[in-house]
Design a protein around this nucleic acid. Structure first.
Length: 312
RNA sequence: CGCGGGAUAGAGCAGUCUGGCAGCUCGCAAGGCUCAUAACCUUGAGGUCGUGGGUUCAAAUCCCACUCCCGCAA
């Protein structure tokens, strides 16, 4: 069996699979070490660290079509491959190497939210539930037949962070159970209903910019969905400088009369911002280069911003 | 050597450019006002200005080194 993965939760899955005698992992494939952090230190991926600790063979190809890499994979005679948060699109000749295909985990209720940011998309859209799908890979993104699916509710205070945490805790055992059933031929792959497919895109920094003309409810969802990346942020002019502010915790008051969009208002120790529909209460906010501040702390030091507006 | 912001009272910040009494808002304490209050008035306590060195009659402020926090980028 081959294991493709890079990010944290893939590492957790790998850790559990490496401990399970059912699986014989021949190669772990992960992204090359990347410079990361403020110091740009060359850092191995979480998956690589787990793999090395478990004594597994690690490959880090920069080119997935590299002939010597493909030959090495073929020679392993792996029956099946698992791919989780690897971070690359796999070429067709690679997918066809393993006789039983590639199994992928996708944190949405496919065919909803195909693409690289399904959890964020579900929260930002206000979905009441989402899920985890396990599927076989085909040539199109998140398009292959489903092996199993589980769903869970998204509450009013669901954030990307707490939802991802839940997925990290839930997905490994679900995946392991599903893979075993698949290997033992107890599962029949089900074709997705392609007509109902929806898509999400790779989020960029600019996607986190708040449009204050949108409703308070929509902005609150965005704040919950986009932390820690790309964060929901806005800008304002403070002491002749344009500063960026990240909104970390907010609460929408859709029924309250609004102010002009983006206007800051103080009410006792509470901070409100006007939106296109309703008021948005800000509970914690982080000025650029500063630590996260509660609304009360923010009001102490940034009082001069009151009555002014965040930029659209 | 990737780029940048920051460290000053319990909290958040100004003051640094141009060296000269340690400030603002909030909080805290006491008193007052009030039917009453989180409101309002008066007073008060609370500081190793991140650390170490240097320049100077004099350093939060200028120079050098260091530690820690954070934003960007990846």
């Amino acid at each position: 069996m081959l294991f493709f993965g890079t990010q944290d939760w893939a590492a957790e899955v790998l850790r559990q699979m490496a401990e399970d005698r059912f699986f014989e992992i021949t190669h772990v494939i992960t992204q090359p070490d990347q410079p990361t952090g403020r110091k740009q230190l060359l850092t191995p991926s979480p998956v690589k660290q787990i793999a090395l600790a478990a004594g597994l063979s690690v490959l880090q190809p920069t080119d997935l079509k590299d002939p010597s890499f493909l030959r090495q994979i073929k020679e392993s005679d792996a029956e099946l491959a698992i791919i989780i948060a690897y971070g690359r699109i796999l070429p067709e000749e690679l997918i066809s190497i393993t006789p039983r295909g590639f199994i992928n985990v996708h944190p949405s209720l496919l065919p909803k939210w195909r693409g690289p940011s399904p959890i964020q998309a579900a929260i930002a859209a206000g979905d009441e539930k989402t899920g985890i799908s396990i599927m076989l890979i085909d040539t199109k993104m998140d398009h292959g037949p489903l092996l199993a699916q589980m769903e869970f509710p998204l509450s009013e205070d669901a954030t990307f962070i707490n939802t991802m945490k839940f997925v990290e805790q839930t997905a490994p055992s679900f995946l392991i159970k599903t893979v075993k059933e698949f290997v033992e031929n107890k599962l029949a792959p089900q074709t997705q209903n392609h007509a109902e497919a929806t898509y999400c895109k790779l989020l960029k920094r600019e996607d986190g910019r708040i449009d204050w003309n949108r409703s308070a409810i929509e902005i609150e969802r965005m704040v919950r969905a986009y932390e820690p990346w790309p964060s929901a942020w806005t800008t304002a002019t403070h002491e002749d400088r344009t500063m960026r502010f990240k909104l970390l915790e907010v609460k929408a008051h859709p029924d309250r009369d609004s102010l002009p969009p983006g206007t800051l208002l103080r009410s006792d120790d509470t901070l409100f911002v006007g939106t296109g529909a309703g008021l948005l209460q800000v509970l914690s906010i982080q000025p650029e280069g500063k630590k996260t501040l509660s609304a009360q702390d923010f009001l102490c030091g940034y009082e001069t911003l009151l009555g002014k507006r965040f930029d659209g």
